[in-house]
Amino acid sequence: MASVALSGKVAVVTGSGGGIGRAVAIAMAEAGASVVINDVGASLHGEGASGSPANETKALIEATGGRAAINTDSVAEWDGAQKIVQCALDNFSRIDIVVNNAGILRDSIFHKMDPNDWRAVIDVHLHGTFNVSRAAAEHFRRQESGAYVHMTSGSGLAGMVGQANYSAAKLGITALSKVIALDMGRYNVRSNCIAPIAWSRMTSSIPEDSPEKKALVEKLKRMTPDKNAPLAVYLASDAARHVNAQIFGVRLHEIYLMGQSRMLRSVHRSEGWTPESIAEHAMPALQGSFMSVQSSSQLIPWDPI
């Protein structure tokens, strides 16, 4: 069996004061990594700050003999990201793994979305992923090794009602991950994404205002954050040295590989196209391959086992 030990490695896990981030941080420590627990202590919507969530994660890691340090800087700030990576260097002398997990939600129907809510979510998710990844990149390049694990979402891959900001950021992360893989593969640096499904602060905001929503919440409560941690540990380990530029999903005991944008079908007209010929010939020929207008929650109709 391939070894997925992380002994001697140092991991930064953003947003690891609770939920999926905490589960990943604990699992990486159990696999032998020293962990920087980054968490600003903010609420789901990004307000307030307290060090207590990160302290709880640190106590859980140290209770089983693991090593951890706390950083409370914001991933949304370039200087904050530099300090997050520096925390790894100051405490453990190196950095090998970055897990971009920090996030907030500010949901709203698109035609009512406040520009400030758009910017706040983009800043934490997309800019935050860039900031921390970029802060680690020079170290990865010099040592010619490193692993990025970015948290995307079904909301980004397929869309979700009321989450224009979150969906845009999460899909942007997949494109960023792909380019990191292309640019840094020559330095033995890998970049992959996980689309996790778990009951956490992110999903606990789902309103239970219909029988369907209540049923969805009950399903989600079975999907505890720790179900996502084994894949994150694997992708960070040397056992995954051949895995790069991929997008995986986790749902309870399922792991699935997500498709990426590719041409589905083409039409050609030797004399070129007019709006009329497109309407008459091109669209009817292509329509059978159109993607359906469904949200992410509608794309997996079977119950988790």
Rank of each mutant, 00 (worst) to 15 (best):
V233E: 08
K221M: 12
S205Q: 15
P115H: 15
P207Y: 04
E138S: 13
G80D: 07
D79W: 01
D114G: 00
R190K: 08
Y187A: 14
L182W: 02
S16L: 09
Y234P: 03
R94A: 14
N116K: 14
A245G: 02
V243P: 02
I104R: 10
E212P: 00
I305H: 11
R186L: 11
E138N: 07
E77D: 15
K214D: 04
I305M: 12
S266W: 06
S3E: 07
A232F: 00
S108Q: 15
A102R: 06
A285S: 12
H281P: 00
P115T: 15
T72I: 11
A135G: 03
A29G: 08
W273M: 02
S296Q: 13
P301I: 06
A42C: 15
D114K: 14
D79P: 00
E271T: 04
R141I: 14
G288D: 08
G288V: 02
S296N: 10
S7Q: 15
R94F: 02
V12P: 03
I300F: 15
E62R: 13
G259V: 00
H268K: 09
P301R: 14
Q298P: 11
K214T: 13
P196H: 03
P230V: 05
S261Y: 05
D303Q: 13
V98I: 15
L105N: 07
V40H: 03
N131I: 03
S295E: 08
H127D: 14
V124D: 02
R265V: 09
V161F: 10
A164S: 13
L216K: 11
R67C: 08
A68Y: 03
M223N: 09
Q86G: 08
Q143G: 10
A42E: 07
F248C: 06
V132I: 05
V99S: 02
Q294W: 15
Q260E: 12
E56M: 10
V267G: 10
A136Q: 06
F130N: 06
Q82W: 01
E138R: 10
K112A: 05
N55G: 14
G65T: 03
V293M: 12
K58G: 05
L157N: 02
A42R: 14
L252A: 13
E138F: 01
K170M: 10
S177H: 01
L105A: 07
V24P: 05
E47S: 14
